[in-house]
Design a protein around this nucleic acid. Structure first.
Length: 218
DNA sequence: AGGAAGATCCGCT
DNA sequence: GCGGATCTTCCTG
């Protein structure tokens, strides 16, 4: 266990409503103690996936396959998937017991192991704020792959430490890349720390072709 | 058996 | 803003 982040969030913390968990994860710290070193980052952007009703969720309609089975299991574990032939994406299984829901971690503010991250990304000159900006990049930088599928985040390899600082203002918007999801495409279930340069990008407002950002803060 | 789509990222225009 | 990379998974026939 890392000296710097001795605590971790208990399983019950993840068994609350997924929208609450997605918001409360902002400011918490994701830690991976891998063989090639320890990397950690402060969570600055998340998205909630509220299966089985949410058409954008991989657990939509209660469809359970080998790929998404972790979403149907215990809370506080890793749901990881491979997409576009290239990228891993990391989620935490969350929500009331029995509901297949999860929170996608979309961006981190790097805290530890920045040189290891640059090594894993093969980008020795990359600025800190770009190392974990986006769900695919953060998995590569943190060394997260399908080997960790279903991992219990109460363990000593991959875990989440509680936040130690008050996060800045939280902003919300529709989720990224789910335009196919009908009415669910417009739900403001993406959360980020307003003004943080490590946040992945601004969303394309669902169903709107304007350059204006469909965002609000609270 | 075959095909289409996907919770992405990067580089070029 | 757009398209290419790259491959696993799932659905259809």
């Amino acid at each position: 266990m890392s000296d710097r982040f001795p605590c971790r969030l208990p399983r019950e913390w993840f068994e609350r409503r997924t929208l609450i968990v997605a918001r409360d994860l902002i400011g918490c710290v994701l830690v991976h103690e891998a063989y090639d070193g320890i990397t950690a980052g402060r969570i600055v952007e998340t998205e909630a996936y509220l299966g089985p009703r949410d058409r954008a969720a991989h657990s939509f309609a209660g469809r359970q396959t080998e790929r998404n089975s972790a979403m149907f299991g215990p809370k506080g574990r890793a749901y990881i998937y491979f997409i576009y032939g290239m990228h891993w994406c990391f989620n935490v299984v969350t929500g009331p017991v029995g509901l297949p829901q999860a929170v996608l971690i979309r961006a981190l503010e790097p805290l530890c192991g920045l040189e290891i991250m640059r090594l894993r990304l093969a980008q020795p000159q990359a600025p800190a704020h770009s190392l974990c900006r986006g769900p695919g990049k953060l998995c590569r930088a943190m060394g997260i792959t399908g080997n960790l599928y279903g991992a219990d985040l109460q363990g000593d390899t991959l875990y989440i430490a509680p936040r130690t600082d008050q996060p800045r203002r939280i902003a919300t918007s529709p989720r990224i890349g789910i335009a196919y999801a009908g009415v669910f495409a417009a739900k403001p279930w993406r959360f980020w720390e307003d003004g943080n340069p490590c946040v992945s990008r601004h969303p394309r407002p669902a169903g709107v072709t304007s350059t204006r950002r469909n965002t609000r803060t609270m």
